[in-house]
């Protein structure tokens, strides 16, 4: 894992601020404008953040695909916060979003088996208001360490 520069830290903080405010990660062009750097430098910084597993980039566009617990693309897990709505990467991350934002949230999730919609209310202090439903983790932890820095 390479050293994290001050610029990379500024970009990471901006990425999360942008997501919190609008519900989606910024493009490389938007990062360049915010940090006052060229788009090429912004893209290079995103690649460096990806090496450090702070973000995962889309394999084709090289824009941000995931910045845990947030997803740039639609998933089964939609989280509605105080300022915006967000896509979560997985069932763990649907709770990770209110935790990362420090906000209460409403979650619209679907059952992986039958696609039935389930609405969950999450209080920032006390957690989910119901215990109906469950989360299944398929792979043991020793098989997901490759992604643990991001997860």
């Amino acid at each position: 894992m390479s050293e994290i520069s001050d610029t990379q830290t500024r970009i990471r903080v901006f990425i999360y601020t942008h997501i919190a405010e609008v519900g989606a990660p910024p493009t490389a062009e938007r990062i360049a404008a915010e940090i006052s750097m060229s788009v090429d430098d912004a893209r290079a910084s995103l690649e460096a953040l990806a090496v450090n597993r702070q973000v995962i980039l889309d394999p084709t566009s090289r824009e941000i695909w995931m910045a845990g617990p947030f997803s740039a693309v639609p998933t089964r897990f939609r989280v509605h916060g105080a300022e915006a709505s967000y896509w979560a990467n997985c069932a763990w991350d649907m709770f990770g979003i209110p935790a990362a934002l420090g906000q209460s949230a409403r979650i619209d999730a679907t059952c992986a088996d039958c696609d039935a919609p389930m609405r969950l209310e999450v209080d920032r202090d006390t957690g989910p208001s119901t215990n109906e439903g469950l989360i299944h983790i398929l792979l043991p932890a020793n098989r997901w360490y490759a992604d643990i820095g991001f997860t």
Binding site: V13, Y16, T17, A20, G68, P69, A91, W92, D93, M94, F95, G96, I97, A99, A100, L101, G102, L120, V122, G127, P128, T130, N131, E132, G133, L134, I135, H136, I137, P140, T151
Partner: peptide, 20 residues
Amino acid sequence: AVLSLAATWGLAKAWYVDRR
């Protein structure tokens, strides 16, 4: 592994509370 929603919340909070 199977986790309850309450247990998953506990894990998610510990994991992500400082992400920003």
